[in-house]
Design a protein around this nucleic acid. Structure first.
Lengths: 195, 195, 195, 195
DNA sequence: AATGAATGAGGCTTCATTCAT
DNA sequence: GATGAATGAAGCCTCATTCAT
């Protein structure tokens, strides 16, 4: 019953009643409990499922040997592809405050992708391609920009055709890239991210 | 009792019970109803109040005659100042899916600030300082990056001192700025955003 | 599936779910409904089955021609034998408040054994062997004592070997028996029990 | 809302719905939860309350210096007085299988009264007044007889006036007493009650 | 005959809201 | 104005029962 996803996206976890989910799935309310022991278990399973899907798509598409610019582009396009294929799933896992009902296992999953992105950034920084700032900062900026764009798209404020996507990708690369004639080329050490 | 804010930030609108708010405010549950006719009225008032505060801070701080780069910097720093002064308020108005309980008046408010930012971007584009892309896209990218950074900060994944803030601001300017030797200087028409 | 008995003993009728019974019986939930039209029908059948078993054992073992003392002893030992052979069955039919779900037929069965015991007591009273009190009172005292003893045994508070059983039987006979030198031999009329 | 007692007595714990209790108490269902956090907490509180009442009545009435026969009589009459004053309470605490929902604290309370009765019996045995059997056995026999009598009374099968009560008391004393000319006077050691 | 997924009424509990004090 | 007990609708979940396989 992953069409429970739609409800959670629309009204949030606490704003969604199990009967609503059941109605949307065209089953009886009790039926859901044959597959999920509780509402919380249901969100967590949903969350883990889609988080895994993104991660596997990204890991699979990631061009190991390519340059940082290409790696960035591929990751970006892959995530966009996912967000277009399953817009609800993307909105659900990225734009909700899950803190109050996700279990530890789900939270742990969340860290993996960001860990990966951070390490990629670190490598690019050592090559002088990316600004020598805290990789966490860079990653959050880019990911935040991405989410903002997708949210605007979902809410109908922005049309996302291939050209716009390509433009956005270049703009986000600019966010983290070292530009000729700017002070970042000197290899300043990045600050540590967390106390 | 704007300490209801804290509850909404932590657990969301539907996840927060009126008695919880009352307890946090150290008043009786009934007392809230002397000031707000309903829970929905309370969120809406909260939302409008803080949305107005940001807007007034930004409008007040905005340097009319200055260049686009300076205007961008000031807006950015002003919003950061707000987000630091009232972190809950910022998180509340920017990172929650309010769609299901905000009334029309609140929704309308939301558009004003973005309208303003978009027009500023348009002006900067005509001066050749900002990439000639759909202003909506640029704005959502920057604002999304901003929110992503703040969220990472709130969740303890990122330390935000003045230097980091300044670095982030420069990176976000790079997101939208035209860079020498790049193809954007040629005045390519931006795609229109959605109606 | 008379292993439903175990569930009813442990958690009571309302506290037992049909799936629990099915699981214990290692069949599917639906299977039970091939043999019993409803949960109520199942309890009633269980109840009647075991009530009949006790009665038949007692009637069969009862020594018609023997003296009252011997008759008492045999009945007592027979019921103890039953309670030891089928402890769950005994606990089920004697220590549960069945009022809310037993049908009339089941309730009627309950009276038969007590009727029989009462008539036996009446005879013994006429011989001056048993206290000339309301036979209902005497019977309830003895039966209550019996149940109390069995419950203590089931709950692990009392070890019941043959010697203890024999001792208890003698003690219960003392409960109803006329003792030399006591005032009961004078033939005081017993109070009538209730209509 | 100790009129929840009536419901539990009539239909048992699992057979009683909170709304039924509420209706009987003439309050709304939600109101109960201002006073008890859950249905289980409610039963436990009920159980503890009434168990304490019996114990305090018995301890208060107990004639310390008197002989065993008098002590027995007083205890018996006191419990009868309680059972007559609050028949539902007596039925509730003595004739229900509480095992599945009582908490440890409640279970512990249960042991106190029986502990007391057992020690009293032990003393009387050392004086040669009571049969030298396992005190647990004797106590369970007498208490079981008592409960059986009360249950018959509650179910309308037995009228309990003062005379009947006095007769029953004497009969139960016979259950445990040593009778002249019987083999118990020799001071045979009692068997231990539990492995 | 046996299965077990599906059903939906009903149970326990929460919570927005009211109102007597 | 403030309180907090009371309300009852609504939410999560269970479970007796059905039915297609």
């Amino acid at each position: 019953m992953t069409a429970a996803l739609a409800c959670f996206v629309e009204r949030g976890f606490h704003g969604t009643a199990m009967p609503q989910i059941a109605e949307r799935a065209e089953v009886a309310a009790g039926t859901i409990y044959h597959y999920f022991p509780s509402k919380e278990a249901l969100v967590n399973e949903l969350y883990r499922k889609w988080k895994s899907v993104v991660m596997q798509r990204v890991f699979k598409a990631f061009p190991q040997g390519a340059g940082a610019r290409e790696q960035f582009r591929v990751m970006w396009l892959e995530i966009i592809a996912f967000a277009r294929d399953d817009p609800d799933a993307f909105m659900f896992i990225e734009t909700h405050n899950h803190a109050s009902y996700l279990d530890q296992e789900s939270v742990a999953l969340d860290r993996n992708l960001k860990e990966f992105a951070r390490s990629m950034l670190g490598l690019a920084q050592s090559q002088g391609l990316v600004k020598p700032l805290d990789p966490t900062l860079l990653m959050e900026l880019v990911f935040g920009a991405f989410v903002g764009m997708m949210r605007a798209h979902t809410e109908g404020r922005l049309v996302l055709d291939d050209e716009v996507v390509a433009q956005a990708e270049r703009a986000c690369w600019d966010t983290i890239a070292v530009h000729p004639g700017r002070g970042f080329g000197s290899g300043t050490a990045s600050a540590p991210s967390v106390a």
